[in-house]
Structure formats: C-alpha cells, structure tokens
C-alpha cells in the first residue's frame, strides 16, 4: 500500500541558499510525525512545497502514491492534504460557520451556485473542534488565538483532508489553550487523521507524535522516536549551538 505522504530527495534552492537539502521521509497511514529544527531550519519551506506554494527545485512529493509535483494548491487539497498557518488567516468579516463553509465548498462554480450550504455539517465541524454553540455566529475579531487555531483546523477539516500539516499550532497560546488543541489532535488521531506537525513547543509535541524528524539547514539530522531524537548529539548541538 502506498503511504499518505512520501518525500524523496527534496531540494529547494533560493538563489544560493539551500533551504531544503536532499530531504527524504515518509509519513504512514494514521501516523503523527513531528518536524522539528531550530529557527530557519526550513520546516515551513517543506510545508510550502508539500502544498505547492513553492515549487521544489528537484525531488518528488507523493500523496498516496501519486506524484503531486505539478499540481496546484487547490488540486493538492482536493487530493487530501491541507495545512494550517503559524499566523491564522481567517475571513475577517465572516462568522465561524461561514469560515468553515468556505472550506466545505465544491470547487465548481455551477455546484457553488446550485448547492445550498450544508449547515448541519458546518455546525458539526465547529462543535467537534470545541466551539460552543454560542460562538458560531461570532466573527474572528471576537475570538481568542486558541479559537482562531480551532477555526483554522475546522476549515481545513471541512476540505475533507486526510493528511493535515500543522505549522506551529501552539505558538501564542495560553497553557489552557495548548491543552485544548492537544486533546483535539489526540481525538483526531484516534479518528484516523494523519499528521505532520511543526512545533517549537517540544513539551507539548511529545505526547502527540509517533515519530520525530529533526532538520537543520534543510537537511535531515535525525529521525526516530521523540526520546531518540532528543538524545541525538547533532540535534542537541543544533538547538543549543554547542558541540
């Protein structure tokens, strides 16, 4: 069986800078993988290439065995991979439900005109990420950072994704919000979602991942369980800057 996400010898150069350096890894069905590394290691660039926001210089990205190197971002999303952003990007003048609605829409103009919004499904998604019924009519301006993250996850789930890329999901959250998001991720793992998670908050990341990949200067320096990677000498020196 083909893996949900398979990255092979991925290289991305920005002029002279090598942002992704011959990176290969695989995410298996239902697995949750942490992608870690110091600032500027190239984690977000990997996300951007998986989503087609940047095109790789060479190497391949396969989604369920299909090479998606030439697909546009919306096409990749319909194939089942979606991401959230470090800084949430909601639709500022829409309610929580309307934000989720955009994720649910069919990518076909005629269907958009003909089909009514699936109200029940929108509500179900909103409640499943932890919104209260009283939140559904609120606009993003009235929401906390934690709620904005939940909203992004709900809109991402609404696209019908089966592989979720989470970029710094815990950044800027309170301790209580981190706990909420973490339990949400745990619940989604039980439901069979495949994850690739970037986080600086290693303590919060630890219980959420089956495997960790550490990168520095765009290249993989370690891969294994959380404990193995944390004890790796290269990883320690890249984070602490000491040999």
């Amino acid at each position: 069986m083909s893996h949900p996400l398979q990255i092979d010898k991925l290289v991305k150069r920005f002029g002279g800078l090598v942002a992704t350096d011959n990176l290969s890894f695989t995410v298996e069905q239902g697995q949750s993988v942490g992608l870690i590394g110091p600032n500027g290691a190239g984690k977000t660039t990997v996300f951007a290439q998986i989503m087609g926001e940047h095109r790789q210089t060479s190497g391949s990205i396969r989604l369920y065995g299909k090479d998606i190197g030439a697909a546009s971002t919306p096409e990749r999303i319909r194939l089942g991979v979606s991401r959230t952003y470090q800084v949430p990007r909601p639709f500022a003048e829409m309610t929580v439900l309307e934000n989720i609605r955009v994720g649910q829409m069919p990518n076909n103009l005629w269907q958009m005109i003909r089909r009514k919004p699936q109200h029940e499904k929108e509500v179900e998604l909103a409640l499943s990420v932890g919104f209260l019924p009283s939140d559904l009519g609120k606009t993003p301006g009235e929401l906390s950072m934690g709620d904005l993250r939940k909203l992004e996850m709900a809109r991402t789930m609404a696209t019908g994704t089966s592989v979720m890329l989470l970029d710094e999901v815990f950044a800027g959250l309170t301790v209580a919000e981190i706990a909420q998001i973490a339990s949400l991720i745990q619940q989604m793992r039980k439901d069979g979602m495949t994850f690739l998670i970037v986080s600086h908050d290693l303590k919060a990341l630890e219980p959420l991942v089956d495997k960790v990949i550490a990168i520095n200067y765009g290249a993989r320096i370690a891969e294994g369980t959380f404990a193995e990677v944390m004890n790796n000498a290269d990883v320690r020196s890249s984070y602490l800057g000491a040999a």
């Binding site: 990007r89 958009m112 005109i113």
Partner: peptide
Amino acid sequence: LMRTQLGTALSAIGMNEESVRGSGLSTTK
C-alpha cells in the same frame, strides 16, 4: 447570484485570497 455560496466565495477572496486557495478553491476560476 451573490446570495449563493459563489457570492460567499467571492467575498472570501476580498478578505483573504490565500485562505481561499488554502480551502481548496481555485481563485483563478
């Protein structure tokens, strides 16, 4: 026409075009 989901999608472009793409919709179309 603008009361359909299409109208919502067009408004969404005005608010955040990247997020519309990130929701799997072709903004070019």
